[in-house]
């Protein structure tokens, strides 16, 4: 059994549209994108899927070695954790989520693209505390 993770809410918000996951860390203003296989993997990780199960599912779907798939998932998860986009889920909360849909084209290792070109502007305008009562 591998590990499972949860999106680091409310600091992090994400949306999947048109085969692309766009993720924002609201604390830093840095945003990220993942498309293709990466988008599918993001959806599974964000849904609390077990990383071993995701790797197995990738291996089967794309006819790649299971170890190679596990290594790619491991690298991605390390980066997602390092960027504080996901955190380890509490034990026992692993979902059965594996891969949904199919990315077009062959297998490409999932890549987290990072953009900090909005960070300065987004940091200028932090929300105020909730309305006092």
């Amino acid at each position: 059994m591998g590990s499972s993770f949860r999106v680091n809410e409310p600091q992090v918000t994400a949306k999947v549209m048109d085969g692309e996951a766009v993720i924002i860390h609201l604390g830093t203003g840095v945003y990220y994108s993942m498309d293709g296989v990466g988008c599918m993997v993001w959806e599974s990780i964000a849904a609390g899927g077990d990383t071993d199960a995701i790797a197995a599912s990738l291996a089967e779907r794309y006819g790649i070695g299971r170890d190679a798939a596990a290594a790619d998932i491991g690298r991605l998860v390390d980066e997602l954790v390092a960027q504080e986009l996901v955190a380890a889920a509490e034990s026992g909360s692993t979902a059965t989520a594996t891969l949904n849909g199919a990315a077009p084209g062959g297998y490409e290792p999932p890549v987290l693209k990072r953009y900090d070109d909005m960070a300065e502007l987004l940091a200028l305008d932090p929300p105020l505390p909730a309305a006092p009562r």
Partner: peptide, 9 residues
């Protein structure tokens, strides 16, 4: 903010 990021991409 997500919309802004998507638009910028």
């Amino acid at each position: 903010q997500i919309r802004l990021a998507r638009a910028r991409l």
